[in-house]
Nucleic acid binder design. Structure first.
Lengths: 182, 182
DNA sequence: GAAATAGGTCAGCAATATTGACTTACTTGG
DNA sequence: CCAAGTAAGTCAATATTGCTGACCTATTTC
């Protein structure tokens, strides 16, 4: 507390800046901050998914169908096992939505080339169109939020969300983005 | 397209800087960026909720119970109507979880002072303890992510998530944070 | 006293998830 | 070639969480 007495007159030559440099160089880990994050994740995620839900409702599909369409669309030729590993649901849960999507002509199956036990999943033209429609709804929401928040905030958002994920999800994200692997 | 021919030699006097100033002052609205955001929200939200789900599972409770505990804890004395407005579920859906929480001694009801039709909801001591336990699990996750991402990213995360929410949710967030209204 | 409001309740339905057991088809390794 | 392992499909049963619509009680308000 000896620093409390430093503010003695030095000849009026030096005037300190009115505000400290950048906000604060340490993370605010207060309960209030954590509570806010809880709320932000709940409300933000709800809003984000709801815009796609409206489209799905017209077609009698649910959020689970959307997820399957999304990950098949992004990973054409994915196997059932790999899709299960991404979604982390049981085979039975996936079967229900997958059969519905196949019956309604949104998803196609093809046996693997080298291993014919595999069923490689792809979107049909109708499936791509539907996935695009769902994506557009969410994209509109994101575009609005992105423009409202600014590019720096978007980068921070991505950093935090990635830090929130577990290793498996990070590995998926890293492999699926720029490389467009296969 | 006349600008295409501007790059003629000017005497080797002027050397342009090797890199453009800050990253980019505009938002990247490419499909790749939007796809990434979809994945980040899905995986991040799943991970965030899963840490609380583990605790809930021990007690035979679900995510719906957690949400009710959370919003009652943050808004002591909230009415059933207001809770329904926040959660945006039906009276019947709330009644199921609310009755379970009351039966198990986590939530207490009291008639309103001026309007005795109202049932003001509060957490019992056990309810506060449980909510705290659930909060701690999610807080640990957030602390890890916060520290990994840094304070600037956290601010960006908050900005984006807020921009994603609808007006009703923003109004709730604004009223529930620093003011601790009532 | 009638109408509106806050809340509770009942019956039934749908979507999504779970577990466990079993079958079929195919690949692999001794 | 045959046995074991793997990928996938399926069946039956169950739980959670949401929905609708109808109806009831207590209380406030006009």
């Amino acid at each position: 507390m000896t620093g409390m007495l430093k503010a003695k007159p030095r000849g009026d030559r030096f005037v300190p800046p009115p505000k400290l440099p950048p906000p604060t160089p340490v993370v605010d880990l207060s309960p209030a901050e954590m509570r806010l994050a809880q709320d932000l994740l709940f409300f933000g995620y709800r809003e984000f998914t709801s815009v796609a839900d409206k489209v799905l409702e017209e077609l009698g599909l649910g959020r689970a169908h959307h997820r399957a369409l999304h990950f098949i669309g992004r990973n054409p030729g994915i196997t059932v096992s790999d899709l299960l590993a991404i979604l982390r649901i049981t085979k039975q849960s996936l079967a229900r939505v997958l059969n519905a999507l196949i019956d309604q002509g949104y998803v196609a199956q093809a046996p693997g080339f080298e291993d014919r036990r595999l069923r490689l999943l792809t979107l049909t033209d109708a499936g791509q169109a539907l996935e695009q429609r769902l994506f557009d709804a969410q994209r509109d929401k994101l575009v609005q939020a992105w423009c409202e928040a600014g590019p720096q905030a978007v980068e921070g958002f991505q950093t935090v969300m990635r830090a929130l994920m577990d290793r498996g999800a990070r590995a998926y994200i890293d492999g699926t983005g720029p490389a467009e692997d296969a």
